[in-house]
Amino acid sequence: MKRNPAVAGTFYEAEADTLKKRIEWCFHHKLGPGKIPEIGDERRLKAAIAPHAGYIYSGPVAAHTYQAIAADGFPETFIILCPNHTGMGSGISMMPEGEWITPLGSVKIDEELATELLEASEIIDIDESAHLGEHSCEVHLPFLQYFNQDFKIVPICMWMQDLETAKEIGNAITNASKGKDVLIIASTDFTHYEPAEVAYKNDQKVLEAIISLDENRMYERIYQYNVSMCGYGPVAASIIAARGLGATRGRLLKYATSGDMTGDNSSVVGYASAILE
């Protein structure tokens, strides 16, 4: 199956040339990393966290994640964990075969790894419907394709985001990924539609738990401070999987809000880029 882009022309540009220019704008923006990195070959990273709003809002923050990924070197496969915004599909939905199309080309699904993940967990379902209109996996692909066309993905969409579910998904990823060249991307935005000072204060408390690789404390702080983070399940699963694959620390690369882009700080969305290594 070919999964055609759902948000090209809205979240990012629909034409290849203008999309590449937008990605370069993200890197050179004052909130971005300031330069476009060269591709490295260390491959130390186990997981990364990136936002998924429209590029004009969260693209410069997301560019910090992709700078780190590019500088570290591309894996063979990205497992992309995203929340379910559409309500379509099952609790945990995987698209196990086919390819995803963007204006920059196509990306194939790693069917072998997808099969092993399905065997490693009883709660992951084969369900393409959750992915057809979902933006929070798709928006990461053009950033990756800008640097490299030779990689595969396994997209997993999480409607169920409780801690027990995240633990099962994280452990399944660990078991299926050992001995393979894999990097996990957790797709999330942080506080939604609060004043900027509230978003910053509460999001920092959650981010402290994330970079400490402490998924339990992350959930505690989300509940304690009522943080409207949309992809907490994907982040928790990524922490668990990354730790199982040898990660010992996290690093926050950049935090900003939509208010930093628009100038309106009365009601913002928080964005963060981080890596687990």
Rank of each mutant, 00 (worst) to 15 (best):
E168I: 14
V182C: 02
Y225M: 05
I210T: 10
I211C: 04
S238P: 01
E208K: 14
C230R: 05
E208G: 06
D162C: 13
G179Q: 07
D162Y: 06
M229N: 01
A209V: 08
A166R: 07
L207H: 01
D189S: 02
E194W: 01
S238D: 03
T248N: 11
N175Y: 08
S238V: 10
E215I: 10
A242K: 01
R221T: 11
P195S: 10
E197T: 12
M229E: 02
V198S: 10
A172K: 06
I210H: 09
K201S: 14
D181A: 11
G231I: 04
L207V: 15
Q161M: 13
V206I: 14
E194S: 06
A237E: 04
I210E: 03
D162H: 09
V182Q: 03
K167R: 15
E164P: 01
A242P: 00
L183K: 12
S212L: 03
Q161H: 11
T188S: 15
D189H: 06
E215F: 11
E220F: 08
T248D: 11
Q161Y: 07
F190T: 02
L183M: 14
T165K: 08
D162N: 15
P195D: 06
I240G: 00
T248S: 12
S238I: 08
A236W: 03
T165L: 07
F190C: 04
D181C: 13
E164K: 14
I222P: 00
N216D: 13
T165P: 00
E197D: 13
T191Y: 05
V206S: 06
L213R: 07
D181L: 13
I184V: 14
N226P: 00
S187P: 00
V235N: 00
V206D: 01
R243C: 05
L183G: 03
Y193N: 07
D162G: 12
I211S: 04
E168V: 14
Y219A: 01
D189L: 08
D214Q: 07
H192S: 12
A241W: 01
E220R: 13
K205R: 15
R217L: 15
T191S: 15
I211L: 09
Y225R: 03
V235S: 01
T174P: 00
W159T: 12
F190P: 00
Q204S: 10
G233Y: 05
A199G: 11
Q161C: 13
K201E: 14
A196P: 00
G179A: 10
V235I: 14
G179W: 12
A237I: 09
R243L: 03
V198K: 14
L207C: 04
D162W: 07
A237D: 04
I184R: 04
S238A: 15
I184H: 03
R217H: 01
D214I: 10
W159C: 07
S177N: 07
K205W: 07
L163E: 14
E220Q: 14
N171S: 13
V227M: 05
T165F: 06
F190G: 02
N202E: 13
R243D: 04
S228E: 08
S212V: 05
V227E: 02
I239D: 02
C230L: 09
D181M: 10
Q204F: 15
N202R: 15
